[in-house]
Write a protein that binds this DNA or RNA. Sequence first.
DNA 1: TCTAATCGAGAACAGTGTTCTCGATTCGTC
DNA 2: GACGAATCGAGAACACTGTTCTCGATTAGA
Lengths: 248, 248
Amino acid sequence: MSRAVLSLCTVFRMAGMGLRERRREELLGELRAIARRQLTENGAAALSLRAVAREAGIAVSALYRYFPDRDGLLTDLLVRAFDEQADEVEAAGAAAPDPAAAFAAGIRAYRRWSVAHPVEFGLAYGTPVPGYRAPAEQTVRAGTRVGDYLTTVLATAYDQGLVDRDAVERRAARLTAPTAEQLTVLRQRRGYGGPVALTALAMDAFVTVHGFVVMEVFGQLRPITPDAAAYFDEVVDERLRAIGFDRA
Amino acid sequence: MSRAVLSLCTVFRMAGMGLRERRREELLGELRAIARRQLTENGAAALSLRAVAREAGIAVSALYRYFPDRDGLLTDLLVRAFDEQADEVEAAGAAAPDPAAAFAAGIRAYRRWSVAHPVEFGLAYGTPVPGYRAPAEQTVRAGTRVGDYLTTVLATAYDQGLVDRDAVERRAARLTAPTAEQLTVLRQRRGYGGPVALTALAMDAFVTVHGFVVMEVFGQLRPITPDAAAYFDEVVDERLRAIGFDRA
DNA sequence: TCTAATCGAGAACAGTGTTCTCGATTCGTC
DNA sequence: GACGAATCGAGAACACTGTTCTCGATTAGA
């Protein structure tokens, strides 16, 4: 019978609670921990409510007091995974000396977390889990944090003169009308700074990086390159060079 | 009670068969068609042996005479999807006037098929279906056809002087030792022609394209660009330019 | 202290994949 | 052409799943 380790923040929050609410919070944390362990060990499809209840030592029906249904549990794990990944990306960026280095560090952290947590990554970015449709209102916020961060940090790098103006010019020349329109909408909705072509450069980089990571995590890269780390560095370097970052 | 349409090839093959074998082939085709329709309509997880049997008007247990188990059925559908996609890629390439155009056409066909068949694409390239592990010996052959084709066609384009020598030089300069080693192994095992850096360029292009398509099919591109087609053309054009194809 | 809300347990239902047995049908051979 | 052997489909059964319902026990707030 293992108890879930409670974070300090949780402990403080639980101070002003009644007995019932405290117990609820505690069990909820334990259930999340059990579910996540089963998720990482057996995959998303093998995540069974009955198995979670069995391991927690409670009845299956009691689980429905904490999660609406199986999809609700998956969604809960999904948004927490999203947030954990975004946390690491932002932390890596914050530790970098300047915005340009933060962009590169964020990208590398993105891959690091993904390969370290393949099942969570698959749940977040993989095939829409068969028979499971992630509710947008729950996931969109967490899911766009990484994109927001990378785009924003690139904009401040641009403002500080760290981005090659010629590279932005070249990208602007290749920008087609429909894409420019759509990117403009996205920019003013999210409040991205810098020229449109800069946003396009950020998207280019993210698409390449994400595509690479997807292939690596899902095993499609293995026939090509058993050790994808070195290849990843080449791809990233080329992308950074395209933006005008000499070294990173 | 709808009968599956039999291809001409199948009809000819069935000429020299006994009654039993002919019936088997016919029912097998019908089962595959039913399963595939259910797969595309409801997703991979919702593919139910009992539902297939019900629609085919046979008992569930009878299904086990045609497929070893549920995973076996999924694998069967998977390799057929792989092959169908590779067929379209190769057909598009064969219709192009020269190898350089064939490379571009193959890439575009790759996206076209994927977007048109999102569920099959997800089954082939998405999250290793939860609780389902595709047996390598069954899928590797079909899964590498596209990569083989693109790499080969790029090599013949190189031989015909259609590839910019400077681009290959630049890629060679960025090639790190471990990646070069792994690519060399891959090249001699698959019999790819041209210099190593050329293979790297082919991989770069495929990784970018595949990553893009994954994001588009799985919906991650929607917040960025509702209409991904135009953006795809920009990404592809930039990749082709990197290889030294002016237009395609 | 008493009422109302919350909670966990257990049974039940419909659905799934898989295995087994058992007649019926077809195949290859004497 | 008949006969033993292989193959086939049907049906029942088992273990498992998600989900819902009811029913006492426990806690919260007036």
